[in-house]
């Protein structure tokens, strides 16, 4: 269990000061994975450094299992840091040590006996599925394997909290999936509170139970993934959904953008709405997936029925429909930001 209370980080003094984190309140329970997302410069890296206490917050608390770590003196802080395991973006392994020796590093720092270290390292290697790579050097490992070693090292001291600081950024999609499923497995097995900081929105859907959006040093939105995805007012929920390019509607029919807006959307809504409107609804684009057993997603459809009838028919099945013009306007908005970084695109 980790709680951040009124966490604030200010760099510099007086006129020149820059508030990077502004009064953040975040709770992550044991066995929960919270994804913190946000564009570049939102303060994600600073937040990561405040969570694992490599940087001391200017004010506020970092509470792990009931103890506030933020105000501890340096020596105690070093000990306290061991309760938080960190997985870094580039695994940051020692290049002249083998996988096993890298995993042993925190144990070596702690002064654990060689026999105990060996046993623990063997256990950790097995947990991350790298027993057969124990004596390989980092240059002999793939990106995913490096990250697994990084995860094993982060877990060496049996932390209560695991912080993943862009740990899957830069990995290919398949490797990302395997690292993410390892994190979920570990979360279940070890009852970890996991803070997953990322700028990759599509990874969030695969890994997180809940998500928070960090913008300009503030948490602007926070909630369980299902709540965010089924709330049409949630910008974060919208940003988490993949963007689709719909097919052209038939002449005479108009375009509708439909989102799952409740937890009780029937799986055959397309047929139900078609029957109610007395015309086949054309499916032009769709993405639907189950998050914790609840269907979420969005679709673009084409139909001829008058607007008020269509809206009402969709609403009866927990869907929210917006006429096509708006959807097209949204798409145009997306295109206008093509020049921005890819990660920002997802926020358009």
């Amino acid at each position: 269990m980790i709680s951040l209370k009124n966490l604030t980080k200010v760099y510099g003094h007086g006129e020149q000061s820059l508030t990077v984190l502004d009064n953040l309140d975040v709770d992550v329970a044991n066995g929960e994975i919270l994804a913190i997302v946000g564009p570049s410069g939102a303060g994600k890296s600073t937040l990561a450094q405040c969570i694992n206490l490599l940087e001391r917050p200017t004010s506020g608390q970092v509470i792990v299992n009931g103890e506030d770590l933020a105000q501890l003196p340096e020596r105690k802080l070093r000990v306290a840091r061991r309760r938080i395991g960190t997985v870094f973006q580039s695994a940051s392994l020692l290049s002249r040590r083998t996988a096993a020796e890298n995993i042993a590093l925190p144990l070596q720092y702690l002064g654990v006996t060689p026999a105990e270290t060996k046993a623990r390292v063997g256990e950790l290697l097995e947990r991350v599925g790298l027993s057969h790579r124990a004596n390989h050097y980092p240059f002999e490992l793939s990106g995913g394997q490096l990250q697994r070693v990084g995860i094993a090292r982060a877990l060496a001291l049996r932390p209560a909290v695991l912080l993943s600081d862009e740990a899957t950024s830069g990995l290919d999609p398949e490797t990302t999936r395997s690292v993410v499923s390892l994190l979920r497995q570990l979360r279940d097995d070890l009852d970890l509170a996991v803070v997953f900081i990322t700028h990759e929105m599509d990874t969030v859907l695969h890994v997180a139970d809940s998500a928070a959006r960090l913008e300009n040093g503030r948490i602007t939105e926070q909630g369980s993934l299902v709540d965010l995805l089924t709330d049409h007012d949630s910008a974060l929920g919208r940003a988490l959904q993949p963007h689709l390019s719909p097919a052209e509607p038939e002449a005479g029919s108009s375009l509708w953008h439909v989102t799952y807006d409740s937890r009780k959307v029937p799986s055959d809504w397309l047929q139900l709405v078609s029957a109610e409107l007395g015309e086949p609804v054309a499916l032009l684009a769709a993405t639907i997936q189950s998050i914790d057993g609840t269907s979420t997603g969005n679709a673009t459809v084409g139909l001829r029925a008058p607007a008020h009838l269509a809206t009402a028919a969709f609403a009866r099945h927990g869907l929210r429909a917006i006429p096509g013009e708006l959807a097209i306007a949204n798409a145009a908005l997306d295109h206008s930001s093509d020049t921005r970084a890819t990660e920002d695109l997802q926020w358009a």
Binding site: L54, R78, R81, S90, P106, Y109, L157
Partner: peptide, 14 residues
């Protein structure tokens, strides 16, 4: 790399 020092600090090293 600075991240190597950061990882060592995060690992509880003096």
């Amino acid at each position: 790399p600075l991240s190597v020092t950061a990882a060592a600090r995060a690992s509880g090293g003096s």
